[in-house]
Each structure stands twice: as C-alpha cells, then as structure tokens.
Design a protein around this nucleic acid. Structure first.
Lengths: 248, 248
DNA sequence: GCCCGAACATAACATAGATCACTTGGCGCC
DNA sequence: GGCGCCAAGTGATCTATGTTATGTTCGGGC
C-alpha cells in the first residue's frame, strides 16, 4: 500500500533532503515506497542482534536507539534514532544484524521490504548514492562516539551528545527556539556514554548549576548554544548536513 | 597506468573477496584500476581532517590508522587499517573528511581517482554493492569499538582489539600459525583504547603473566585463541566475513 | 484522592585508571 | 664504539567515576 503522505512531509524524504539534494521524481518515488505501518510502545525491541530481516524499518515518530549487549550483560547504546532514520538500513547488504534496535518512547514505524528498496535503487542510481551517503554519515557518527567515549570526561562527554541530538532534531524540524522534547532517561544516557546512572545524574546537576542546560520534565532548553558547543568541543562537520545554516 | 599485479594477488581484490563473492570480470576490472603508487614512511599523515580529496587511498602494505584529535588535543584512534583497506573510501560520497589517516609503520599505498571508482561502480553495479558493503562493515566495526571503549575494562578491552586485529590480518593472509607481526606501539594502543600508555603497559604485563599473549619485538603470538576470545568477549559476527572458517 | 512504580536525587565509600617522575633497554647513526 | 632517542617498564600518588544504599518526587491508574 503506497503511503498517502505528501512527498514533502514524508519523514524519509525530509531526512534524506537534510543530507542530499533530491529531484522531484526521486522525492515522489521515495514517498510512494510501500510501507507496512506499526505502532510500538516504549522499551520494545524492533529487531534483535542475530536477526536476518527482509525489510528495514523507517522511524516515523518517536525516539529509538541502537544498542549492543556485552557478554557481561552490559548495554551500550551506540546511536539514538530519530524521525526519518532507517536504523537497520545496513541489513540490505549485511545478512545478519550485529546490533539490536529498541524504542525509547512510543514510536510509529514503517517497514519497507528490501526488494522494494533494491528496486528503487536500481531505477534511481542517485537514490542508491543517497542511501549509501546516509550509511556513511552513520559511520561518521560512530567514529565521533568512539572519540567522545574514549577521550572526553563528565560534563564535556554529555554536552557533546546533547549538541549532536539537538542538531539532528533541528534538521528534521523537532526543535522550537532553544528547546526540544528529549524523552531519554538518565539511565539511557548512561548506557550511551559509558557512565553509571548515578554519574549521569551528577553530571546533569553540574550542567544545570553552570547554566548550560535547563530541564523541565522531558523538555530540554539550551540557554547558550555557543557555550554548550564549546564545553562539548562540538564541531558539526561530522554530521555532513547539506543545509549549512542548520549546522550553525 | 593499470597496475601489472595479477588479479588474485591484488590486495583490493583479496580484501573484497573476504567479504563479498566477485566474478572473474569484476576481479579483473578491480585489478586493472589505475593507481598512483607511493611509499610513505612511518608516522606520516596520508590525509587530514578537513581535506576534500579527489582520490581514495588503497593500503597495499604496512599498518595505518584512522584518528581524530579533540579540541583538548587528545588523539583517538578509531580504526586500524591493514593491507587491502581503503580507509578513506567514504570521501567518494562525503565531500569533507571528518578524520585523519596516518601511517603507523612504513606503508606502500595506491591512490585511486574518484572518477575511476565512480566509473567502475557504474559499469559493475555489484562492485557498488561490494564497496557499500565494505563501508557498512566499517560502520559495524565502529559500533563494536564504541561498545568496547564504553563497557569493557583493562585486559578485556585490550584482548578484544587484539582478537579483531588477528582475524582481520588472517583474512588477508598476514597470520602464520598463531603469530603475526604487529608494529603498534603501546602509546598507539593507548590512543585506540582510551588508556594512557602507562596503563597499556600494565595491562599487557598482566596478559603476559596470565599466558594470554607472548610478545617478542613486534611479533605477537597467541598460545590459546579460545581463551583470548573469551577474555575479550569476542564474537566475530560484526566483521561479517564471508569465509566462515576464517572467523573460527 | 490514594497508591504504586519509575525516574530522579543524594551520600559514603571503593577502585580502575590517570598523572607524574623516573629508569632501563635496544638500536641506528655519526 | 659511544651518543642519542624512542619505546618500554616502574613506583607513588591522585581523581574521576563506580558501587551500594536509601530517600524523594511525580504522573497515571483505580
């Protein structure tokens, strides 16, 4: 069933356009990709490490994360997934998944069959390039995370992911002014940063005390973007956003 | 100038065949890619963060690494590059590099023009798929590194990278029996693992004492592969090697 | 309008790993 | 064949972060 959504508001189109320039036909073809829609509650796995899915999952709304569990049972979140992301696009070329994907908040997702993706890539070679570029940017983000976890401490490590989240949210229109909705718990930040929940709490307290962030429920507001960027040593180049002012 | 190397011994062909099945024609086309050869001494940058190269670099022999420098001047190595790797293949679709690449030992490299790569991808769509798959596997390795640096400590963290290095070296024929040449200094391991050189030294001492590794100059030998895998919680799935017994 | 569980907060104590300062060993080079 | 240099090794001390334990807040269901 082709989605009835208009091309310009289709999350996949909007996401790809934040990193690649699409033609009218390409936008149209993407918006007409058949999708099987589903609503998923918070904290449910969408796919699991070891699976060999025959479709990929487009996140339409809500927050999800990509994670791995070590033999010791510890969880590392390696990426947060936002609206427009296709967190398991890799499964198009890698038969077995090496990570799991779980919702963080309630999400609505669209499953797209691999055969339909292969077909659209054949018809539109520039769409192949766009998807390839998306997976390359994911790779760039992972490299930055290795660096963040390996070299930055406490406040600076946290500030860095917050900067990334805000820019990526803004790229898909989910930031209003200086505030956005961020339904990520402190424990989840811990799993993403390699901290304990206790330490995440201490770090956030310090950031609030220093006026770097203001939180109200799940709302995050950043009073001084430049200062947060500086504390997090954040340089947005690695996100490879097409729309340069989005990266300001 | 097409390289005179026979297809079967061409490092790029051998590397791609470790993750993808190539036809005779595809092997031939890859081996005939024009390359500009160069010899580079140890500890020299090949490309730098911020560059926009019009060619990619195939590592023919020697060891290199991909790294980033933080605003604080700390270095994180995010990947070791071995013979057959094209560590900046991403630059084909991402205009500006978000990382630097440096040699670790003396290396010989071949530079391949992006236009030649684009042309071969057009002529052989399966080669596009092979390269895309290679970049996806790089992404999988970065995810594993985030997990390694974020969740494992001391001996286990070190054991994990050693396992990865050994399997990847074996996939391109650089392991003989239980030993291989690993010209990586303790300081470089430190930059890769998020440890200080002092701590790397202590961790290696402990691993020697426990009989996990034996070192003699730059030679590393692993007396008990199964035990090293267990200590490093190493599951080779994420390397997505085509040749399954290589992953044993 | 009360109860319950999840998320958040806080405090005392423990430790892996950082830092600093120094020694040793090997090896190329004049 | 001695000089210099880089990698490796060592020991004392310090600190960011982990661990354990317990208290507090708050939103949603009955």
């Amino acid at each position: 069933m082709p989605s009835p959504m208009s091309a310009d508001h289709h999350p996949l189109v909007r996401k790809l356009e934040s990193i690649f320039t699409l033609s009218h036909d390409e936008r149209q073809a993407l918006a007409n990709l058949p999708m099987q829609l589903a609503s998923i509650k918070a904290d449910q796995d969408i796919v699991r490490e070891g699976d060999s899915p025959s479709r990929s999952c487009l996140l339409l709304s809500g927050f999800a994360c990509t994670y791995k569990i070590t033999a010791q049972g510890k969880r590392q979140i390696v990426s947060f997934n936002l609206s427009g992301d296709v967190p398991d696009l890799q499964s198009l070329h890698l038969k077995v998944l090496d990570n799991s994907i779980s919702t963080i908040s309630a999400c609505s997702v669209g499953f797209i069959a691999h055969e339909d993706l292969r077909e659209i890539c054949e018809r539109f070679p520039r769409i192949t390039a766009a998807f390839w570029r998306e997976t390359l940017i994911d790779g760039a983000i992972f490299r930055e995370w290795v660096t963040n976890v390996g070299q930055r401490e406490g406040v600076s490590r946290m500030a860095h992911v917050l900067c990334e989240l805000i820019l990526r949210l803004r790229a898909v229109g989910l930031v209003e002014g200086h505030t956005c909705d961020l339904p990520i718990t402190q424990a989840e930040f811990g799993d993403a940063l390699g901290f304990t929940p206790v330490h995440v709490n201490r770090v956030l307290q310090q950031m609030r005390a220093e006026g770097l962030i203001v939180t109200k429920g799940t709302q995050l507001t950043v009073p001084d973007w430049e200062r947060l960027k500086e504390v997090g040593e954040f340089d947005p180049t690695y996100l490879h956003l097409e729309n340069k002012q989005a990266a300001a």
